[in-house]
Design a protein around this nucleic acid. Structure first.
Lengths: 344, 344
DNA sequence: CTGAAAGCGCTAACAA
DNA sequence: TTGTTAGCGCTTTCAG
């Protein structure tokens, strides 16, 4: 096996010098450096990570933890949803671009959550990104998020302890939902139903709040009987729409696109038309939304920006040992397509 | 910082004994073991991974590599597709369940591919799973797949060198496509278009082959003018369907669901109806396919089984230092829904 | 059943 | 500019 010792011998220098070259230490004669570099390349030498880490070099592995505990009695998993999958991929991609490796874990039980903690303590990862947490976060061990640099996506922190190594990144759910609802109101709708997301999650809560506020600001009464609590997954959109259609509504604001798409199916099954009879609007702007009929009006919530913010912030943290800010909000935009319509 | 030394001191034993407990070595008096275990728990002690690795304990990190080089001139990424995202998630989930950690990397350039190689050499990962490779695999460095235990999904290996540490896992694309096409034929269709997947990938090739064979077996002529080469992504399904509709066809077999869904949109835009005018059938059985109108007839290609096969095989490899088999084929099943129809 | 000692491959003072 | 030396925290022979 190739070691730095071996490279050193081959070059007639000491291991230290080889180490200097590897770590870009300037105190090496250019000629020596080139010679060593060549030898390294020739022998396909790569230092054993564990040895470097043990000797004090920081790991470049960040943990990406998808919390997916007990979403419902069923075996449905948010981690399988388009939305989460995409976000995971985007974060990995961004991280790889900035020189991080990403260890992804899907947490489906308390036991697994403990193992996550160990990833930090054992220094397998240097920091972590959490997604999918319930806002109460009863599950997430405070120990971890207080001791290690941590980013939480879609979460409203409670305590204010030790904030310098914790960052929260959120969509601007409230104003996105507000804009969506307001748009429906401006289009003449007054009976606007809402299928919420999981209300244990910040995005679910805030989108619901935005919907309510828009209603109130327009002097429309907020009628709880045309609101249903969904869970961001296909079947809830489908089933709850069937319920909602009994309530004399002309529009539905769904807390995400997946539910909106299945809402459209439910509407059609009822013999009604989207958008002629019922307007439907989603949230997220997933790719397929533009490829269904009618194309889905939605709120663009760019996951790329979340991924970027994550990784940039982590990079910043590595340099400065603290995050630049406590919270980042990502702007959302209404995307008008064909699933909504002006009514008289 | 807590170390095994410290635990040892606290318990009045040597590090060796603590190490034995951690590694489940039976040669420890039960009483001593319990005492140490308690102390470990009390102090939240977890051994530093790097130190263990350096001392010879195998890593439990497997690499999951999504090859996503240059799919087309555009910036589209297969790694963002529902299909890949899901597969990635499923593999992670399975792996976590069997005690592996998963390091995911998305490879978008030759440079990144080199870095992958380093992950093996530096012993960051002990083995790797590759998905998204072009069948020619000009990019994938043979060095890696010949030296390290490697699983490749959706790939037809050429060489037969060093097979004991390489496993290929594939869907039964051919028979799935065959069944789909045959079903359309039995439903009375004779002019059946095909929108293929990326023909640089095995799944693209084999689904195309299955389509052809079914046609030939039914004595229908294979007409290249009603075949279009797609790329498994939304827009190709959409655009190519518009082309295909000029060709006097009554059915389209799309190489995956995402293209099938956008094909349906294209058909509707043309003022035609699915399935009355045009039958559409997909492949993959993604979740949303059941929630569009009409619900998509498709070929179920269960990613869970691939994920399971992957991780089980890896587990087996860890024990026996070789894979149990060279190739695994996952069965596919036709799922009949509403996007296809019998014609006279 | 337990401990002493050596060593995994690397980095980082400190000296030269 | 380079080398010597001493660890990093753990596992693992080998003795006892």
């Amino acid at each position: 096996m190739m070691t730095s010792e071996e490279i050193a011998r081959l070059c007639g220098v000491s291991r230290t010098t080889v180490s200097r070259v590897i770590n870009n230490n300037p105190n090496v004669k250019e000629e020596t450096r080139q010679k060593i570099l060549a030898m390294i390349k020739e022998n396909n030498y790569v230092p054993i990570e564990h040895a470097r880490r043990l000797a004090g070099v920081d790991s470049n592995i960040i943990g990406l933890f998808v919390l997916d505990i007990n979403i419902s009695e069923s075996k449905e998993r948010v981690s399988k949803s388009t939305y989460f999958s995409q976000l995971v991929n985007l974060i990995i991609d961004q991280a790889n671009n900035l020189g991080f490796q990403v260890l992804v874990s899907i947490i489906t039980s308390e036991k697994q959550l403990d193992e996550i903690k160990n990833l930090f303590i054992s220094r397998t990862v240097i920091s972590g990104i959490f997604i999918g947490a319930f806002n109460e976060l009863p599950q997430l061990n405070d120990f971890v998020i207080s001791q290690y640099p941590t980013i939480i996506i879609d979460y409203q922190p409670k305590a204010t302890s030790n904030e310098s190594n914790r960052l929260v990144i959120n969509m601007d759910n409230f104003s996105g939902a507000y804009k969506a609802t307001q748009f429906l109101i401006k289009s003449g709708h007054t009976r606007i139903g809402h299928i919420s997301g999981d209300l244990r999650k910040l995005s679910g809560i805030e989108r619901y709040e935005g919907y309510k506020k828009a209603l109130l600001d327009a002097n429309l009464c907020f009628d709880k009987s045309i609101v249903r609590e969904g869970n961001f997954l296909e079947d809830s959109g489908y089933l709850l729409t069937h319920e909602l259609l009994k309530e004399n509504i002309t529009a539905i604001f769904c807390a995400n696109d997946v539910m909106a798409i299945s809402a459209i199916k439910a509407v059609k099954e009822k013999g009604l038309n989207v958008p002629d009879d019922i307007s439907v609007i989603g949230f997220d702007n997933i790719a397929i939304g533009n490829y269904i009929m009618p194309a889905l009006t939605t709120v663009d919530a760019p996951l790329e920006l979340i991924a970027e913010a994550c990784v940039d912030s982590l990079k910043y943290f590595c340099k400065n040992k603290h995050f630049k800010q406590k919270e980042i909000r990502i702007k959302t935009n209404l995307i008008l397509r064909q699933s909504t319509k002006v009514i008289s």
